[in-house]
Design a protein around this nucleic acid. Structure first.
Length: 275
DNA sequence: CACGAGACCTGTTCGC
DNA sequence: TGCGAACAGGTCTCGT
């Protein structure tokens, strides 16, 4: 379920807490249970994880791209939810759920459960979070990411727009939904080579990326299927999973093609391939 | 460097 | 009804 808006929504909920659960900051680890070994990417030895983690406090929660970053007393815990990951905070007395892969217990009696049906998600414990995040491209909302810089980034590569926007080393946080939505809003075909984008188009694309992500965050993300999260953005989709339905801008029927092995939705009328 | 295919996984939905 | 195929919000690695 997770692109930038979904990860941001989860982060905010974990940080704020609710009637049913406390904020995570301030919680002190008292134990870890790893239920699926490969969910732990680092350290290689899970025993080292519990030895190191126990006694440390969660100081603050951050997001970088699609990574959740918990800053601890002496290190960092990072979680990437990939396709089906989810996090719950609940009492340790609560029944566990199918597909729980890692459970972090706190001294307070609460716990954080990492649930992941498809087992693609990963957890890292490291003292060097910077190394893990080093290859990520800029945050879409980084004020330093100007239209001019974005246009230079696009022209420095020779890639198709859609796969390039999905590339986390180019820009961090976009996934299949928000890429399709942004390209439609910017009226750009997913197969345009990135070095053919002029400054005005780059400006429009950057604005569209920010608009759809902001919309997504405002809607608490998108909840498409059984990987549910309580978001509402699926009701704002312009093209994603709307094959055959009218483009909101011009009314032409949305088409679906495959680009880089990903389902890709676009309006054949608004989003023309030049030449 | 860019691209496509395959791998990693399970669950749901679609078509016959 | 049943069963296999297709598909899913992501990323990594390998071969060309």
């Amino acid at each position: 379920m997770p692109e930038l808006p979904e990860v941001e929504t989860i982060l905010r909920q974990l940080a704020a807490g609710s009637e049913a659960a406390p904020p995570l900051a301030g919680q002190v680890f008292s134990g870890v249970k790893l239920l699926w070994a490969r969910s732990l990417a680092e350290p290689a030895d899970p025993r080292a994880l519990s030895e190191e983690l126990i006694g440390q406090t969660i100081l603050r929660l951050e997001r970088r791209g699609k990574y959740l970053h918990f800053r601890l007393t002496r290190a960092s815990l990072l979680i990437h939810l990939r396709m089906s990951g989810d996090l719950r905070v609940e009492a340790q007395s609560a029944p566990s759920k199918p597909h729980d892969r890692a459970v972090f217990n706190f001294e307070s009696g609460w716990r954080l459960a990492f649930n992941d049906a498809r087992k693609f998600g990963r957890v890292w414990y490291t003292r060097d979070a910077g190394r893990l995040l080093a290859d990520l491209g800029p945050e879409p909302f980084d004020p330093g990411l100007t239209a001019e810089r974005f246009q230079r980034m696009l022209s420095a590569r020779r890639r198709l727009l859609k796969p390039l926007l999905l590339d986390q080393t180019f820009i961090a946080g976009l996934g299949n939904i928000y890429t399709d939505e942004a390209l439609n809003l910017a009226r750009l075909h997913p197969l345009i080579p990135s070095d053919q984008i002029c400054l005005d188009q780059a400006r429009a694309l950057l604005q569209a990326v920010r608009d759809v992500l902001e919309d997504g965050i405002r809607s608490n993300g998108a909840s498409i299927d059984w990987v549910y999260r309580g978001g509402d953005f699926q009701n704002h989709f312009r093209v994603y999973q709307r094959t055959g339905q009218p483009c909101p801008a011009c009314g032409a029927a949305v088409e679906r093609i495959i680009v880089g092995q990903r389902g890709t939705h676009f309006c054949p009328s608004c989003q023309r391939l030049p030449g």
